[in-house]
Simulated assay, not measured.
Amino acid sequence: MLGLSARPAARLRELYYGDSPRSARFRFWHVLLDVAIIVFFIAAPVIRGSAIFLVIDILIAVVLAVDMIARIASLGSLRAVVRSPLVWLDGLILLTLIFPYYLGNFGFLRALKIWTLVHSDIFWRTIGGGEWDDTYIEDVSKAAATLLTFVFLVTGLVYAVFLGSSGVHGYVDALYFTVTSLTTTGYGDVTLPGTAGRLISIAIMLAGITLFLRLGQAVVRPRKVRFPCPKCGLALHDQDAVHCKACGSILCIPDEGSE
């Protein structure tokens, strides 16, 4: 049980994944805090020089460390921890907070918090969920979060590596270059020098096509509902499905008018 007794681990698991009102309130404030942290991460390049920046940075590091320990304990097994990409990514974000001077140039990795939040069970249990639910909003949100995360990751990378060269004189310039490259517009007023700059530009354009295509697919894809088949367990079905397409069992999926 990862060095934690069964009772505290069960309590933590109930807070993070339970259905009680207390769990719902906990997750609500957890998501709200994550959103505030993401806002701080995005604004960090602009306010980095202020006196209070390091204080907030340390406070966020403490909060994320406590939350990460609690979530690891709630998973209940080392295998679940190792197999969770969210734990690994949050750990990487935490390292940039604990060692801001040594890993300052890797601060752009904090944008991964957008991806870890929107792809977490806590987030979707907080804003929706139930025994059955429409997955359309979830799929579109995850695709949009992946695109947004990529934008801020690349913007931070360009800002950290190419600041002061070829038109990149601030964070907005780095964001402008990222968006124009991502959309393959390429006005040419901001460019990255050298072979490394060209390779990064190519990677941004190729990734942009892929991510925009994925977002478009999520938008136009037929809507699905999450309703586990009582016989085979298949989770996703068409909204108007009467039979499970895997085993043929009869389904009783509630419609919008069902209570």
Rank of each mutant, 00 (worst) to 15 (best):
M1I: 13
L2I: 11
R7C: 12
A9Y: 00
R11Q: 13
L12Y: 01
R13Q: 09
E14M: 03
E14W: 03
Y16E: 01
Y16T: 00
S20W: 08
R22G: 12
V31W: 02
V31D: 08
L32M: 10
L32S: 09
L33S: 12
V35I: 12
A36Q: 10
I38V: 15
F41A: 05
A43I: 11
A43S: 08
A44D: 06
V46M: 06
R48K: 09
S50N: 06
S50V: 14
A51D: 09
I52T: 12
L54N: 10
I56H: 00
A61Q: 03
V62Q: 04
L64M: 14
A65R: 00
S77I: 05
S77M: 07
S77L: 08
S77P: 00
L78V: 10
L78R: 12
R79T: 12
A80C: 03
S84Y: 06
L86T: 13
W88P: 02
L89K: 00
L89C: 03
L95Y: 06
Y102A: 15
L103W: 08
L103C: 15
G104M: 09
G104F: 03
F106S: 07
L109G: 05
L109S: 08
L112E: 03
L112M: 14
K113P: 00
I114D: 02
I114T: 08
T116L: 02
V118N: 10
V118R: 02
S120T: 04
F123G: 00
W124V: 00
R125Y: 02
G129Q: 01
E131T: 11
D134R: 04
D134G: 02
Y136L: 06
E138Y: 02
E138W: 01
V140C: 06
S141W: 04
K142M: 06
A144N: 04
T146M: 11
T146S: 08
L147M: 15
L153S: 09
V154F: 07
T155P: 01
T155V: 06
Y159I: 01
Y159M: 12
Y159F: 14
A160S: 12
L163P: 04
G164F: 13
S165R: 09
G167R: 05
V168Y: 07
G170H: 11
Y171E: 07
V172G: 04
D173N: 15
A174T: 09
S181I: 05
T183C: 10
T185I: 08
G186S: 13
Y187G: 12
Y187H: 11
G188P: 07
G188R: 15
T191P: 04
T191W: 14
A203D: 14
M205P: 02
M205Q: 15
L206Q: 10
A207R: 02
G208P: 14
G208M: 13
I209P: 01
L215I: 02
G216T: 07
Q217R: 07
V219T: 08
R221A: 14
R221M: 04
P222I: 05
R226M: 05
P228C: 09
P228K: 04
P230R: 08
K231N: 07
G233D: 11
A235L: 09
L236N: 14
H237T: 01
D238G: 11
D238M: 09
D238Q: 13
Q239H: 11
D240Y: 14
C244R: 03
C244Y: 03
C244I: 03
K245V: 07
E256T: 15
G257A: 13
S258C: 05
E259W: 03
